[in-house]
Design a protein around this nucleic acid. Structure first.
Lengths: 143, 143
DNA sequence: TATTGTTATACTCTATAACTATA
DNA sequence: TATAGTTATAGAGTATAACAATA
Protein backbone atom coordinates (compact mmCIF):
# COMPACT_ATOMS: atom_id res chain seq x y z
CA UNK A 1 0.00 0.00 0.00
CA UNK A 2 2.89 2.35 0.80
CA UNK A 3 4.76 4.77 -1.40
CA UNK A 4 8.19 4.78 -3.04
CA UNK A 5 11.01 2.93 -1.39
CA UNK A 6 12.74 3.60 1.96
CA UNK A 7 12.64 0.96 4.66
CA UNK A 8 10.06 -1.70 3.99
CA UNK A 9 8.53 -4.01 6.54
CA UNK A 10 7.89 -7.60 5.54
CA UNK A 11 4.29 -6.99 4.52
CA UNK A 12 5.15 -4.02 2.30
CA UNK A 13 8.06 -5.92 0.78
CA UNK A 14 5.81 -8.87 -0.12
CA UNK A 15 3.09 -6.61 -1.48
CA UNK A 16 5.47 -4.60 -3.63
CA UNK A 17 7.21 -7.75 -4.82
CA UNK A 18 3.84 -9.19 -5.83
CA UNK A 19 3.10 -6.09 -7.92
CA UNK A 20 6.52 -6.36 -9.52
CA UNK A 21 6.00 -10.00 -10.51
CA UNK A 22 2.42 -9.43 -11.63
CA UNK A 23 3.64 -6.51 -13.72
CA UNK A 24 6.00 -8.85 -15.54
CA UNK A 25 3.19 -11.35 -16.13
CA UNK A 26 0.85 -8.66 -17.41
CA UNK A 27 3.56 -7.20 -19.65
CA UNK A 28 4.36 -10.56 -21.18
CA UNK A 29 0.68 -11.32 -21.74
CA UNK A 30 0.23 -7.92 -23.37
CA UNK A 31 3.20 -8.60 -25.65
CA UNK A 32 1.13 -11.44 -27.12
CA UNK A 33 -2.00 -9.30 -27.04
CA UNK A 34 -3.76 -11.43 -24.45
CA UNK A 35 -4.78 -10.73 -20.86
CA UNK A 36 -3.19 -12.25 -17.80
CA UNK A 37 -6.28 -14.37 -17.25
CA UNK A 38 -6.03 -15.68 -20.80
CA UNK A 39 -2.39 -16.57 -20.22
CA UNK A 40 -3.35 -18.41 -17.04
CA UNK A 41 -6.03 -20.24 -18.98
CA UNK A 42 -3.48 -21.30 -21.58
CA UNK A 43 -1.11 -22.43 -18.82
CA UNK A 44 -3.78 -24.76 -17.49
CA UNK A 45 -4.51 -26.11 -20.97
CA UNK A 46 -0.85 -26.96 -21.43
CA UNK A 47 -1.26 -30.09 -19.34
CA UNK A 48 -4.98 -30.80 -19.48
CA UNK A 49 -8.13 -30.76 -21.57
CA UNK A 50 -10.73 -29.75 -18.99
CA UNK A 51 -14.37 -28.83 -19.22
CA UNK A 52 -15.71 -25.34 -18.65
CA UNK A 53 -16.62 -25.88 -15.01
CA UNK A 54 -13.22 -27.29 -14.16
CA UNK A 55 -11.56 -24.30 -15.82
CA UNK A 56 -13.81 -21.90 -13.96
CA UNK A 57 -12.84 -23.54 -10.67
CA UNK A 58 -9.12 -23.34 -11.40
CA UNK A 59 -9.34 -19.69 -12.41
CA UNK A 60 -11.75 -18.72 -9.64
CA UNK A 61 -14.39 -17.51 -12.07
CA UNK A 62 -18.07 -18.12 -12.56
CA UNK A 63 -18.92 -20.60 -15.30
CA UNK A 64 -20.69 -17.84 -17.21
CA UNK A 65 -17.46 -15.84 -17.28
CA UNK A 66 -15.69 -18.81 -18.84
CA UNK A 67 -17.99 -18.79 -21.84
CA UNK A 68 -16.83 -15.38 -23.01
CA UNK A 69 -13.21 -16.01 -22.10
CA UNK A 70 -13.05 -19.21 -24.12
CA UNK A 71 -15.13 -17.79 -26.97
CA UNK A 72 -12.81 -14.81 -27.39
CA UNK A 73 -9.73 -17.05 -27.38
CA UNK A 74 -11.45 -19.43 -29.77
CA UNK A 75 -12.24 -16.61 -32.22
CA UNK A 76 -8.55 -15.79 -32.27
CA UNK A 77 -7.66 -19.39 -32.99
CA UNK A 78 -5.84 -19.99 -29.70
CA UNK A 79 -8.11 -22.60 -28.13
CA UNK A 80 -10.83 -24.92 -29.37
CA UNK A 81 -13.99 -26.46 -27.94
CA UNK A 82 -14.76 -30.10 -28.60
CA UNK A 83 -17.81 -32.02 -27.41
CA UNK A 84 -17.05 -34.34 -24.51
CA UNK A 85 -17.16 -37.98 -25.59
CA UNK A 86 -18.37 -39.05 -22.13
CA UNK A 87 -20.98 -36.42 -21.36
CA UNK A 88 -23.35 -35.01 -23.94
CA UNK A 89 -23.65 -31.77 -21.95
CA UNK A 90 -19.94 -31.06 -21.67
CA UNK A 91 -17.28 -29.54 -23.85
CA UNK A 92 -13.53 -30.07 -23.59
CA UNK A 93 -11.25 -27.10 -24.14
CA UNK A 94 -7.78 -27.48 -25.60
CA UNK A 95 -4.98 -25.37 -27.06
CA UNK A 96 -4.57 -25.05 -30.80
CA UNK A 97 -1.01 -25.24 -32.19
CA UNK A 98 -0.92 -21.44 -32.27
CA UNK A 99 -2.18 -21.28 -28.69
CA UNK A 100 0.48 -23.75 -27.64
CA UNK A 101 3.10 -21.68 -29.40
CA UNK A 102 2.36 -18.43 -27.62
CA UNK A 103 1.94 -20.26 -24.31
CA UNK A 104 5.45 -21.68 -24.63
CA UNK A 105 6.93 -18.38 -25.77
CA UNK A 106 5.16 -16.53 -22.96
CA UNK A 107 6.33 -19.00 -20.32
CA UNK A 108 9.91 -18.71 -21.53
CA UNK A 109 9.72 -14.93 -21.48
CA UNK A 110 8.29 -14.96 -17.96
CA UNK A 111 11.12 -17.20 -16.79
CA UNK A 112 13.64 -14.89 -18.39
CA UNK A 113 12.22 -11.73 -16.92
CA UNK A 114 11.52 -13.02 -13.42
CA UNK A 115 15.01 -14.50 -13.36
CA UNK A 116 16.32 -11.09 -14.35
CA UNK A 117 14.55 -9.58 -11.36
CA UNK A 118 16.74 -11.78 -9.17
CA UNK A 119 19.94 -10.97 -11.04
CA UNK A 120 21.50 -9.31 -8.00
CA UNK A 121 21.01 -12.31 -5.74
CA UNK A 122 23.72 -14.91 -5.31
CA UNK A 123 22.68 -18.50 -6.12
CA UNK A 124 22.55 -19.21 -2.39
CA UNK A 125 20.30 -16.22 -1.81
CA UNK A 126 18.01 -17.22 -4.66
CA UNK A 127 17.78 -20.68 -3.12
CA UNK A 128 16.88 -19.12 0.23
CA UNK A 129 14.20 -17.04 -1.41
CA UNK A 130 12.81 -20.06 -3.24
CA UNK A 131 12.70 -22.02 0.01
CA UNK A 132 10.97 -19.30 2.00
CA UNK A 133 8.44 -18.60 -0.76
CA UNK A 134 7.76 -22.32 -1.16
CA UNK A 135 7.03 -22.70 2.53
CA UNK A 136 4.56 -19.82 2.46
CA UNK A 137 2.87 -21.33 -0.58
CA UNK A 138 2.73 -24.78 0.98
CA UNK A 139 1.24 -23.41 4.20
CA UNK A 140 -1.39 -21.30 2.48
CA UNK A 141 -4.96 -22.63 2.35
CA UNK A 142 -5.74 -24.36 -0.94
CA UNK A 143 -7.81 -21.99 -2.96
CA UNK B 1 2.45 -20.80 -14.61
CA UNK B 2 2.68 -24.32 -13.20
CA UNK B 3 0.15 -26.43 -11.40
CA UNK B 4 -0.35 -27.59 -7.84
CA UNK B 5 2.66 -27.91 -5.57
CA UNK B 6 5.65 -30.29 -5.78
CA UNK B 7 9.15 -28.87 -6.18
CA UNK B 8 9.14 -25.27 -7.30
CA UNK B 9 11.98 -23.45 -8.95
CA UNK B 10 12.61 -19.85 -7.98
CA UNK B 11 10.55 -18.38 -10.80
CA UNK B 12 7.52 -20.57 -10.06
CA UNK B 13 7.83 -19.82 -6.36
CA UNK B 14 7.83 -16.07 -6.97
CA UNK B 15 4.96 -16.27 -9.43
CA UNK B 16 2.82 -18.36 -7.12
CA UNK B 17 3.68 -16.17 -4.15
CA UNK B 18 2.63 -13.12 -6.15
CA UNK B 19 -0.76 -14.70 -6.86
CA UNK B 20 -1.13 -15.55 -3.20
CA UNK B 21 -0.45 -11.97 -2.09
CA UNK B 22 -2.56 -10.44 -4.85
CA UNK B 23 -5.37 -12.78 -3.86
CA UNK B 24 -5.25 -11.36 -0.35
CA UNK B 25 -5.33 -7.80 -1.70
CA UNK B 26 -8.25 -8.57 -4.00
CA UNK B 27 -10.13 -10.35 -1.22
CA UNK B 28 -9.71 -7.46 1.17
CA UNK B 29 -10.78 -4.95 -1.48
CA UNK B 30 -13.82 -7.08 -2.26
CA UNK B 31 -14.71 -7.20 1.44
CA UNK B 32 -15.20 -3.43 1.22
CA UNK B 33 -16.90 -3.78 -2.16
CA UNK B 34 -14.18 -1.98 -4.07
CA UNK B 35 -11.68 -3.19 -6.66
CA UNK B 36 -7.97 -3.58 -6.12
CA UNK B 37 -7.34 -0.55 -8.31
CA UNK B 38 -9.71 1.51 -6.18
CA UNK B 39 -7.88 0.38 -3.05
CA UNK B 40 -4.56 1.38 -4.61
CA UNK B 41 -6.10 4.75 -5.48
CA UNK B 42 -7.19 5.23 -1.89
CA UNK B 43 -3.72 4.24 -0.69
CA UNK B 44 -2.20 7.02 -2.77
CA UNK B 45 -4.76 9.52 -1.48
CA UNK B 46 -3.84 8.67 2.09
CA UNK B 47 -0.75 10.85 1.88
CA UNK B 48 -1.47 13.22 -1.00
CA UNK B 49 -4.09 15.27 -2.82
CA UNK B 50 -2.99 14.85 -6.43
CA UNK B 51 -4.55 15.86 -9.70
CA UNK B 52 -5.98 13.40 -12.20
CA UNK B 53 -2.86 13.18 -14.36
CA UNK B 54 -0.62 12.50 -11.38
CA UNK B 55 -2.97 9.77 -10.22
CA UNK B 56 -3.03 8.24 -13.69
CA UNK B 57 0.77 8.14 -13.73
CA UNK B 58 0.98 6.48 -10.32
CA UNK B 59 -1.58 3.85 -11.25
CA UNK B 60 -0.25 3.32 -14.76
CA UNK B 61 -3.56 4.29 -16.37
CA UNK B 62 -4.63 6.66 -19.09
CA UNK B 63 -6.08 9.94 -17.86
CA UNK B 64 -9.42 9.03 -19.41
CA UNK B 65 -9.53 5.88 -17.28
CA UNK B 66 -9.09 8.01 -14.18
CA UNK B 67 -12.24 9.96 -14.88
CA UNK B 68 -14.50 6.95 -14.49
CA UNK B 69 -12.51 5.51 -11.60
CA UNK B 70 -12.75 8.71 -9.59
CA UNK B 71 -16.35 9.35 -10.62
CA UNK B 72 -17.48 5.92 -9.42
CA UNK B 73 -15.66 6.35 -6.10
CA UNK B 74 -17.07 9.85 -5.79
CA UNK B 75 -20.63 8.61 -6.33
CA UNK B 76 -20.10 6.23 -3.44
CA UNK B 77 -18.87 9.04 -1.23
CA UNK B 78 -15.32 7.69 -0.88
CA UNK B 79 -13.37 10.45 -2.62
CA UNK B 80 -14.08 14.02 -3.66
CA UNK B 81 -12.96 16.33 -6.45
CA UNK B 82 -12.09 19.93 -5.66
CA UNK B 83 -10.98 22.57 -8.13
CA UNK B 84 -7.26 23.30 -7.99
CA UNK B 85 -6.59 26.71 -6.46
CA UNK B 86 -3.49 27.14 -8.61
CA UNK B 87 -4.69 25.94 -12.00
CA UNK B 88 -8.14 26.61 -13.35
CA UNK B 89 -7.98 23.46 -15.47
CA UNK B 90 -7.07 21.08 -12.68
CA UNK B 91 -8.93 19.20 -9.98
CA UNK B 92 -7.51 17.82 -6.76
CA UNK B 93 -8.74 14.45 -5.53
CA UNK B 94 -8.93 13.59 -1.86
CA UNK B 95 -10.43 10.97 0.45
CA UNK B 96 -13.66 11.63 2.28
CA UNK B 97 -13.85 10.56 5.94
CA UNK B 98 -15.62 7.38 4.84
CA UNK B 99 -12.96 6.76 2.22
CA UNK B 100 -10.27 7.26 4.81
CA UNK B 101 -12.06 4.85 7.11
CA UNK B 102 -12.16 1.95 4.68
CA UNK B 103 -8.61 2.68 3.54
CA UNK B 104 -7.34 2.33 7.09
CA UNK B 105 -9.44 -0.75 7.76
CA UNK B 106 -8.32 -2.31 4.50
CA UNK B 107 -4.66 -1.61 5.15
CA UNK B 108 -4.91 -3.14 8.62
CA UNK B 109 -6.62 -6.22 7.23
CA UNK B 110 -3.96 -6.61 4.55
CA UNK B 111 -1.25 -6.40 7.17
CA UNK B 112 -3.02 -9.00 9.26
CA UNK B 113 -3.56 -11.42 6.40
CA UNK B 114 -0.15 -11.10 4.77
CA UNK B 115 1.46 -11.49 8.18
CA UNK B 116 -0.62 -14.62 8.65
CA UNK B 117 0.80 -16.00 5.41
CA UNK B 118 4.23 -15.84 7.06
CA UNK B 119 3.08 -17.39 10.32
CA UNK B 120 5.30 -20.44 9.86
CA UNK B 121 8.47 -18.41 9.42
CA UNK B 122 10.72 -17.60 12.36
CA UNK B 123 11.40 -13.89 12.93
CA UNK B 124 14.88 -14.39 11.47
CA UNK B 125 13.44 -16.04 8.36
CA UNK B 126 10.87 -13.27 7.94
CA UNK B 127 13.72 -10.76 8.16
CA UNK B 128 15.64 -12.69 5.50
CA UNK B 129 12.59 -12.69 3.25
CA UNK B 130 12.08 -8.98 3.77
CA UNK B 131 15.72 -8.31 2.93
CA UNK B 132 15.72 -10.40 -0.23
CA UNK B 133 12.43 -8.96 -1.44
CA UNK B 134 13.59 -5.43 -0.69
CA UNK B 135 16.73 -5.93 -2.75
CA UNK B 136 14.73 -7.18 -5.72
CA UNK B 137 12.41 -4.20 -5.42
CA UNK B 138 15.29 -1.75 -5.11
CA UNK B 139 17.04 -3.21 -8.16
CA UNK B 140 13.92 -3.22 -10.35
CA UNK B 141 13.54 -0.42 -12.90
CA UNK B 142 11.34 2.39 -11.62
CA UNK B 143 8.01 2.03 -13.34
C1' DT C 1 -33.91 -33.46 -10.02
C1' DA C 2 -29.13 -32.24 -10.67
C1' DT C 3 -25.45 -30.86 -13.68
C1' DT C 4 -23.13 -28.59 -17.82
C1' DG C 5 -22.99 -24.94 -20.36
C1' DT C 6 -24.93 -20.73 -22.73
C1' DT C 7 -27.58 -16.45 -23.01
C1' DA C 8 -29.31 -12.01 -21.41
C1' DT C 9 -28.16 -8.28 -18.83
C1' DA C 10 -25.59 -4.99 -16.24
C1' DC C 11 -21.59 -3.11 -14.36
C1' DT C 12 -16.43 -2.10 -13.83
C1' DC C 13 -12.25 -1.22 -16.04
C1' DT C 14 -9.49 0.10 -19.80
C1' DA C 15 -7.83 2.59 -24.08
C1' DT C 16 -8.14 5.77 -28.26
C1' DA C 17 -9.76 9.80 -30.24
C1' DA C 18 -12.06 14.01 -30.11
C1' DC C 19 -13.42 17.70 -27.40
C1' DT C 20 -13.54 21.86 -23.79
C1' DA C 21 -11.30 25.02 -20.92
C1' DT C 22 -7.66 26.98 -19.21
C1' DA C 23 -2.42 28.20 -19.44
C1' DT D 1 0.32 25.93 -28.81
C1' DA D 2 0.38 22.97 -24.81
C1' DT D 3 -1.80 21.04 -20.76
C1' DA D 4 -5.71 19.22 -17.55
C1' DG D 5 -9.54 16.96 -17.75
C1' DT D 6 -13.97 15.02 -19.74
C1' DT D 7 -16.81 12.72 -23.17
C1' DA D 8 -17.89 9.34 -26.72
C1' DT D 9 -17.11 4.98 -28.01
C1' DA D 10 -15.60 0.28 -28.06
C1' DG D 11 -14.17 -3.82 -26.07
C1' DA D 12 -12.59 -7.17 -22.30
C1' DG D 13 -13.80 -9.16 -18.06
C1' DT D 14 -16.87 -10.21 -14.40
C1' DA D 15 -21.28 -11.74 -11.94
C1' DT D 16 -26.36 -12.91 -11.37
C1' DA D 17 -30.33 -14.95 -13.08
C1' DA D 18 -32.78 -17.49 -16.35
C1' DC D 19 -32.57 -20.92 -19.70
C1' DA D 20 -31.61 -25.43 -22.64
C1' DA D 21 -29.96 -29.92 -22.97
C1' DT D 22 -28.37 -33.93 -20.93
C1' DA D 23 -27.65 -37.06 -16.91
Amino acid sequence: MSGESAELDTVDALVQLSFLVQGVLTDVAAAYDVSLVQLRLFGILRDRTPGMLELATHLGLDKSSMTGLVTRAEKRGLVQRRPSPHDGRGVLVSLTPEGHRITDLGAAEITRRVTALCADLTPAEAADLRGLASRIIAAAPRR
